[in-house]
Computed example of a mutant assay.
Amino acid sequence: MTPSYRVIPDRLVSPFAKALKSWESLLLIVAVAIFIANALASPYFLNAWNLSDATFNFTEKAMIAFAMAMLIIAGEIDLSVAAIIALASTMMGVAMTMGFGTPVLVLVGLGTGLACGAFNGTIVARLGLPSIVVTIGTMSLFRGISYIILGDQAFTGYPADFAWFGQGYVVWVITVELVVFAALAVAFGVLLHRTSFGRQVYVIGNNPVAAQFSGVNVARVKFILFLLTGLMAGVAAVCLTSRLGSTRPSIATGYELEVVTMVVLGGVNILGGSGTIPGVVIAAFVMGLVTFGLGLLNVPGIVMSIFIGLLLIGVIALPRLWAMRRRRA
């Protein structure tokens, strides 16, 4: 019998209707709901300067999350990003004690991040070792070097103009970090969604063998992605060290968990092959609003850590549970 209904092809569905059904739209609704809840829960939340301070809860992590998103889409991961921050910050401290000024300190931080990214990329892309195992090892290696150099001491006394990166404002309540975050969001959005390199990242994440036979240099693409991730960790190290005004070997502890949570919450498939930069941007705001709101309510930091851990498990498990439910239906 002829069915009494017609299936509308995807190409006939308007882009607006597709957008409403996307993960990014759901995240945006969640972000608005959290914003309203925070405004109702605390009378200090809607203060412009407080909202400006709230951006510090996510901008440094989001800078790394943009590169991490592309790396995870390609089927890899870098768990050493927090340790790279620690080592880059330590190297900047060493350069500071040698009398170098702000330009050199920034170059040292970025260069250290690039070197660490190149080290990870060489082992993973050239030797073919699993990235999760390699970066767990380099996570201990990089932070261990920081502890060897510093011990239980701290570097302080950075130049006054160095504080501009982490504490400066461009105009009114718009921080330098927020401007850098926005610029990087646009740059990575264009790189992933509007270039052939971005298309290669998706192809590799879906099927690296097919990508190789299609003429994609899989090893080179993965190496570049690790370089970008290391560089973004270096940028985050400059901003974080500038904001804190000091360096300790324990700096940025736990950042890798929050970065991965931010990426996965943004809709990036932890197994690779799919995800968007706009999703990561919205997820960064969601996590920033949540942590800032909990902070205003004097919620202990350990409770926030528990929440982030549960959030990571939830966003990974939810798609699998939804798929199982649809198969049963």
Rank of each mutant, 00 (worst) to 15 (best):
V238R: 00
G128A: 10
V7F: 11
V303F: 15
R243Y: 12
S22C: 03
V186G: 10
A210H: 07
G113H: 03
I282E: 02
F165K: 01
Q167D: 07
T55F: 10
K18Q: 13
L71K: 01
S250W: 03
F58I: 13
A115F: 14
L71F: 07
A54N: 12
T175Q: 14
A88K: 02
F142I: 09
G111E: 04
F58S: 07
S25C: 15
V32C: 05
G157T: 03
L129P: 05
V260Q: 06
Q212P: 01
Y5G: 11
V171Y: 13
G254S: 13
I204V: 10
F181H: 08
D161L: 06
A88C: 11
I316V: 15
I84Q: 14
A118M: 15
R320E: 14
A74P: 00
R194P: 08
T261S: 15
L231G: 02
T261R: 02
S52E: 04
R143I: 10
A82F: 07
A65Y: 02
P208E: 06
G113R: 05
A48Y: 11
T138I: 05
F142K: 04
L51S: 10
P300K: 08
S22L: 06
G117L: 05
A39S: 15
V221F: 04
S146C: 08
L105Y: 12
M287W: 02
L141F: 15
L40W: 14
L265Q: 06
I29F: 14
R328N: 04
G198Y: 11
V7H: 06
I149Y: 06
F223A: 14
A65W: 03
V290P: 03
K18A: 08
V299Y: 09
L51N: 06
G301T: 13
A86I: 10
A233G: 07
T122I: 13
V106P: 04
G189I: 05
M70F: 02
V315M: 03
A125Q: 04
S250V: 05
I277H: 06
L71I: 07
F285L: 15
W49I: 14
R328H: 12
L296E: 12
G266N: 07
D78H: 08
I204W: 00
S52V: 06
I204C: 01
G288K: 04
S52D: 09
L141H: 10
I145C: 12
V32E: 01
V235H: 08
F285R: 01
G198K: 10
T138R: 01
F188P: 03
K222L: 02
S274T: 13
L310R: 00
M68K: 01
G309Y: 09
I149N: 00
G168Q: 08
A83R: 02
E177C: 10
D152W: 04
A187Y: 11
A182Q: 10
T291R: 13
V315Q: 04
E256W: 04
A211R: 05
I174Q: 09
M304D: 04
L227A: 11
F165R: 02
D152S: 13
G157R: 08
F155D: 00
M232T: 15
T175F: 01
V13D: 09
T253K: 11
I282G: 01
